[in-house]
Amino acid sequence: MQNERYGLNKELAQMLKGGVIMDVTTPDQAKTAEAAGACAVMALERIPADIRAAGGVSRMSDPQMIRGIQQAVTIPVMAKCRIGHFVEAQILEAIEIDYIDESEVLSPADDIHHIDKTKFKVPFVCGCRDLGEALRRINEGASMIRTKGEPGTGDIIQAVRHMRLIQSQIRWISSMAEAELFEAAKSLQVPYDLARYVHDNAKLPVVNFAAGGVATPADAALMMQLGAEGVFVGSGIFKSGNPEKRAAAIVKAVTNYQDADLLAKLSEDLGAAMVGINESEIQLLMAERGV
């Protein structure tokens, strides 16, 4: 039964592929995202750029606020809980969220353990910087993976770094002799069975999206060309000059990520992008939370 539920949860992620998941803080923003073609929304009280600016402890959103967004749209609604905070996850499951993001964007609640996601019926997505993190999260029960990138910056460099590293490690594992997999599993600190899956299939056993720092249609298409199966956009939309237009352009860029002529058109006249901060200018690297 537990395996069947895990299968269904992986399959929901398959339905999200080729799509854009947008951070929203109000029902109106959720409607804007849905109308622009988002395949899901992430309900949270403050987008990562504002969390970064405000500082302090950042927690799960108010369930009432999340319910308001669930009522506003028909697409799936996701919400974030703190790394290791399994009670926040229980609360999100109780309000029938479609997907929980155990997220480094919020302040971690446990600096050693992630949530045992196998104990939940509701699906989880988790961030990762490399193949080892991805497979450890999957082993804990995550049914979808995303790069961590660096949230709230509008700087794509970390998402690129994480996606390139994951893809290169997948190629490395899949080209190995079978006898070498035991040592590879040990060095990646992952179970042998998951290393074996990657070796045999040359891909992760779950859907892999890009997240963290996507601000433009070109950023989104870049991540798709690097092997992402879809894109999360956090601060990039509602911190920009024209959220409606930018949201719709990013959705189309993900569908047509190899069509440079169309990408050129989509990139025109979008208004101001989020200002962004460079990786080297920030004090707090959220991506370092939870390994």
Binding site: Q14, L16, E34, C39, K252
Partner: peptide, 15 residues
């Protein structure tokens, strides 16, 4: 295919 009908409907129209 399966996916989000709202997203697919919008892209069908706009493309």
């Amino acid at each position: 295919p399966g996916g989000e009908s709202t997203t697919m409907g919008r892209l069908l129209r706009e493309q």
